[in-house]
């Protein structure tokens, strides 16, 4: 088990390394070669002179060979900015002041702030949205999926299939706008946009309920389908028949014997979806004016804020890798077949 864990973590670190390399190459050489965009030029302000660009290049260390730059980037990501870099980028400031400008993920030239602080400012919005939506979609989809599987081809099952189809085929921005129009604009039950921090739980919930619900519905559709098919498979397993032959009641058979087995792939999918969403639910965030990571990414991309975009990509990638490891761990705890192999 410990060996399994160590292997997964080492594997994860390797994947993150590959991602950093890919991000570095894409946002560095490839961007410069393809669009002639260089961070130095962007950083240097409007219509910079060649001397200015060169100065900024030196300041940011962009005049060094690529492999040296990549080494810096990696080192900064792991250890934080070096004293030498701090002196270069923000001479004369204290460490705390400089942290506002330069972080592990670099520095945003659009906002003159460290990418880290930007991410940490916007991440709670995405985290709240994802958490609330996940709670909602599990609460909606698992009972529906189970009941559909118990009574396949019943009216309930057929209705839920229609629900699944609608949920999967309605684009989330369209559905989001509809929901905004009716529930926020016409009925006035919810605010039109914005976010309140969790320090005020009532307001937090009031602002998040509608976007989380729209997001949840879309995922619920997928989860109804997978819960239903997993339960159908499991309910025809021999051990479910054994449980019935023991005299276990239907509820017990369904929850303790069937669902306990059926949920293994659902847990896997859930973990990966969480990892993905935590990197920013772009469409929902933009539609509902929630300034989460997805919103930040869009902003950064529009302003050609390369370090911020790259930082968010890297941050999401790390989240997904972590989610993968957590999923494997949870599965190993739930399923002895994985643990004992």
């Amino acid at each position: 088990m410990i060996r399994f864990l160590i292997r997964r973590i080492l594997g994860g670190i390797f994947v993150v390394l590959v991602v950093t390399l890919a991000v570095f190459v894409l946002f560095g050489p490839v961007l410069r070669w393809h669009s002639n965009i260089s961070p130095a030029r962007l950083y240097a302000g409007k219509n910079p002179s060649p001397e200015q660009i060169e100065r900024v290049s030196a300041l940011l260390g962009l005049d060094k060979p690529y492999y040296v730059q990549y080494g810096y980037t990696l080192k900064r990501l792991v250890l934080g900015p070096s004293q030498e870099e701090r002196d270069r980028v923000c001479p004369g400031s204290t460490a705390a002041e400089c942290d506002q400008l330069l972080g592990r993920f670099g520095s945003s030239f659009a906002k003159q702030r460290s990418v880290d602080s930007l991410i940490w400012d916007h991440f709670p919005v995405t985290l709240s949205l994802t958490f609330l939506a996940a709670l909602m979609w599990l609460l909606i989809s698992i009972p529906i999926g189970i009941i559909s599987a118990i009574r396949p081809r019943s009216i309930f099952d057929r209705t839920s299939i229609v629900f699944v189809l609608i949920g999967q085929s309605l684009p989330v921005y369209y559905f989001g706008l509809l929901a905004l129009y009716f529930f926020a604009y016409r009925l006035g039950w919810f605010p039109l946009s914005g976010y309140e921090p969790l320090s005020n739980p009532g307001q937090w919930l009031y602002h998040l309920l509608l976007p989380a619900f729209v997001l949840a519905l879309q995922f619920a559709a997928i989860y109804v389908r997978i819960t239903r098919s997993q339960m159908l498979d499991t309910l025809s397993e021999d051990y479910v028949r054994t449980a019935r032959a023991k005299g276990a009641g239907e509820t017990r058979v369904i929850i303790r014997h069937a669902f306990r087995n059926a949920m293994l792939p659902i847990v896997t999918m859930f973990g990966l979806d969480l990892g993905l969403l935590l990197g920013g639910a772009i469409l929902i965030e933009v539609t509902f004016g929630l300034q989460g990571l997805g919103w930040l990414a869009v902003q950064a991309a529009q302003r050609l804020d390369v370090p911020t975009t790259a930082g968010i990509v890297l941050f999401s990638a790390i989240l997904i890798v972590v989610a993968n490891i957590v999923v494997d761990l949870v599965n190993a705890t739930l399923d002895p077949r994985i643990r004992l192999e």
Binding site: D238, Y239, G247
Partner: peptide, 23 residues
């Protein structure tokens, strides 16, 4: 249900699949 597993019990063909793998 009260009779099953009490007054009458059953053994199945495939012992590999008849026991719950996660219990």
């Amino acid at each position: 249900r009260r009779l099953r597993g009490d007054d009458m019990a059953m053994i199945f063909q495939d012992p590999m699949t008849s026991l719950n793998p996660v219990m």
